[in-house]
């Protein structure tokens, strides 16, 4: 398979967790998650609603920190360095690990200001440099031709699909290694969904993408690796199976995976 070849040509591991437990106060949301996410590939996280897919995704850029009472145990590494140390620079981490959300969330400012937001906060001041970054990021997501004449218009006047592409461009403008996507197409129509999926395949040449999706066809279409998560009796999410996508969907090792992908529950 082409996907397998691609994995072999990029054997490095970008993100890794080892025996991670996550608690919201007393409630355990994830248990014993051990997963290694390969460099420059797309990894899909699938599973029934409420099983902790998004929570797992948000471990990688420490977005869970925003919720009071969250506790993470175990090891999480980016490029071999633990990211849950006392002295971890969370700002630097989030520059390396960007995130795209379920609902497109451009800021209520112009198209240009949205893309320039990240670089500006990180100290890029020269207008020429900023404009260069803006154009390059928009070209990368294939939005440049559509918006080059309306860069000063409010980003919220774009269509939902364009807004989501804009949000991806906004992440690229910061220069990440990893892009986390939390159901990025669930609020979009089929055309826009297709456009984002094509873009993800392109981006996977240069970036490591981790996507949470409800849509199993989408996971099967675009991802190289798939992780199936589900809740145990006490509602804590566990990683049931993690394999190359083709294998997980055609020949699952675990009965529960089989039941889920054939639609027997979830």
């Amino acid at each position: 398979m082409m996907d397998d070849l691609k994995l072999k040509s990029n054997p490095g591991v970008n993100l890794k967790t080892e025996a991670v437990n996550l608690y919201y106060g007393r409630f355990q949301a994830l248990r014993g998650i051990t997963i290694s996410i390969p460099h420059r590939s797309i990894t899909a996280i699938i599973g029934p609603s409420g099983c902790g897919k998004s929570t797992l995704l948000r471990i990688f850029n420490r977005m869970n920190d925003l919720i009071p009472g969250v506790r993470v145990e175990g090891k999480v590494e980016l490029d071999g360095a633990s990211i849950y140390e006392k002295n971890t620079d969370v700002v630097a981490l989030r520059k390396k690990v960007g995130m795209v959300f379920q609902k497109p969330n451009p800021f209520p400012m112009s198209v240009l200001d949205n893309i320039a937001f990240g670089p500006r906060q990180h100290g890029v001041k020269r207008a020429a440099e900023l404009e260069g970054i803006v154009e390059q990021s928009l070209r990368q997501v294939g939005l440049w031709e559509e918006v080059k004449d309306i860069l000063m218009q409010p980003a919220l006047s774009l269509s939902a699909g364009q807004q989501q592409l804009l949000c991806i461009a906004r992440v690229l403008a910061v220069g990440p290694e990893v892009i986390l996507m939390d159901e990025p197409c669930s609020a979009l129509d089929p055309d826009a969904t297709l456009r984002i999926e094509d873009l993800m395949r392109d981006l996977a040449q240069d970036y490591t993408i981790v996507i949470v999706t409800h849509n199993m066809e989408q996971a099967a279409r675009i991802s190289d690796m798939s992780a199936f998560i589900m809740m145990e009796e006490d509602k804590a999410g566990v990683l049931v199976e993690y394999s190359p996508t083709a294998q997980l969907f055609s020949n699952p090792k675990d009965k529960r995976t089989d039941d889920y992908i054939t639609g027997r529950f979830g």
Binding site: L66, F101, N105, F107
Partner: peptide, 18 residues
């Protein structure tokens, strides 16, 4: 304000004050 504004900015590596 929608929570997503704040999350979006944090996810881009902005500090709380930024």
């Amino acid at each position: 304000l929608p929570r997503l504004y704040k999350e979006g900015a944090f996810a881009l590596g902005a500090t709380h004050w930024q």
